[in-house]
């Protein structure tokens, strides 16, 4: 193999045909309100953790749905389970249980 001084750049495109959607399916099954998010971002705007870290519940939900789950474990650890987002959510997503279910899903798959 030759080192030309550059590598074939990784694709940024989300490939929905190949990403891992097992975790999404697990959460969907055990906490159905995970499905009804409309991506408005009220959760993230109201998030205590998000004020000091880059924790973003909207993106967490989104990337799990897309099967991009490499960072999920470290991300959910940032949530303080305060429940403020659950109060604010216009769709009534059970956000705390979503976090708990994600954790369970990750454990079961490990």
């Amino acid at each position: 193999m030759i080192d030309f001084g550059y590598k074939i750049q990784a694709d940024r495109q989300i490939n929905l045909d190949t990403t891992d959607k097992d975790l999404a399916n697990f959460v969907r099954k055990h906490e159905n309100s995970f499905n009804i998010c409309i991506g408005c971002g009220t959760c993230t705007a109201s998030c205590s953790a998000g004020n000091f870290t880059n924790f973003n519940f909207r993106k967490l939900q989104l990337f799990i749905c897309r099967g991009e789950i490499a960072d999920v474990k470290t991300e959910i650890a940032k949530c303080m389970l305060c429940g403020k987002c659950q109060l604010a959510c216009p769709r009534g997503v059970n956000t705390r249980n979503v976090i708990m279910t994600i954790r369970k899903g990750l454990e079961e798959q490990l």
């Binding site: 030309f4 001084g5 550059y6 074939i8 750049q9 694709d11």
Partner: peptide, 10 residues
């Protein structure tokens, strides 16, 4: 630019 060639070849 050589540094960008990873993009070109991708």
């Amino acid at each position: 630019v050589q540094a960008n060639r990873g993009y070109s070849i991708a």
